[in-house]
Nucleic acid binder design. Structure first.
Lengths: 189, 189
DNA sequence: ACTATAGCGGAGGTACCCCTCCACTTCTAG
DNA sequence: CTAGAAGTGGAGGGGTACCTCCGCTATAGT
């Protein structure tokens, strides 16, 4: 959550120097993350400040625009997702791919910002998208090389398919898993 | 759009009697449909009235609550979708199913309300959901009976999968089609 | 301890949006 | 033609959100 520089994803916002300010900064980040998760990109900034227990002025000083706040949260999320790609590195090809995608689904299910982001074309999204692709493409290509995934589709197709399933509502988690599996069966060879 | 009673989907709102009032009513419905399509369920009622070229008061007289307006629009949409099931009746089983689903995707892509609706459980959604299921299930079962669709999944799984793909953002329509096809390959036998 | 200063927070202006209410306009039946 | 019923629309009250501004407070370096 507190950022660990990696893959060019550092937000364009710098953590303040003073200890008390840093506390507020982190509280804001956490509150924003929760709020964005629950209510999407449009969550009220005033409520975020309230949740973080700071004044609205403090929020605006740290993050002059909604975009700045969003980036700070969002880059953190994407980073975690990318890191998850390492965790599956030593599974067999197809399993590694599906495990990562499952994590993508489960992870992003509560954080729809990531999905909303897959679509827009603002600069920050491009950066984040590239990071996600950098993390996922090797898994996909490994599966293809092992003859486990069809070669007539792009990783982009796959990721969008999965992200769609993430966004969809399901009765329960079992159904989500089941449907994901069906869809992935279309990719498996 | 102007409602054609069918499958218990008549909205709980009645069209006014006077000619001028009826014109306004229809204009509101059209404007609301566009607005909901563009901005989702939360579109501003005042803007809808503006688009329809009527006063806000007129909107409220015809549709006392946002829900009323939404139902009126939404039931019309669902009806059209159900009607589309008839159009594919004489295609071969698998083709009939996929064609209908493709229409579902294309149709609902601009009208996300339908998808948002698949999830909530208010009474009206139940009604609409049932109508959609009544229209689609036969197509699915026919494909299953013909040995063209796997039998270990429910129509509900399928529809949610497809609706997820609908909601997802794609680079272009070609990609949308491609991804839909991949996902459906997971269902085909 | 002391002070310069980074940081704080919330009042308040602006802009929407929701919804109600009612003086006014338009339609239509007779 | 006409009168009453049906319908109109927008002003206005109550909310909430955005964002700025600035007098006050807590911190860090000496």
């Amino acid at each position: 959550m507190t950022q660990t520089p990696r893959s060019g994803l550092e937000a364009a916002v710098k953590r303040p120097q003073r200890a008390d300010a840093r506390r507020n900064f982190d509280a804001l980040l956490t509150a924003a993350r929760d709020a964005f998760a629950e209510q999407g990109t449009g969550a009220s900034l005033e409520e975020i400040a309230r949740r973080a227990g700071v004044g609205i002025g403090t929020l605006y000083r740290n993050f002059p625009t909604r975009q700045d706040l969003f980036e700070a949260v969002y880059f953190g999320e994407v980073e975690e997702l990318c890191a998850a790609a390492d965790d599956v590195a030593d599974l067999p090809p197809w399993e590694a791919l599906t495990t990562w995608l499952a994590r993508f689904v489960q992870y992003a299910a509560t954080k729809r910002a990531i999905i909303e982001a897959l679509n827009r074309d603002a600069a920050m999204f491009t950066t984040a998208r590239e990071a996600m692709y950098a993390a996922g493409t090797p898994l996909f290509e490994r599966a293809q090389a092992a003859g486990e995934a069809r070669t007539d589709i792009a990783f982009d197709d796959l990721l969008r398919m999965v992200s769609g399933l993430t966004a969809a509502g399901f009765v329960d988690d079992a159904q989500r898993q089941r449907v994901l599996k069906i869809a992935l069966d279309g990719v498996h060879t």
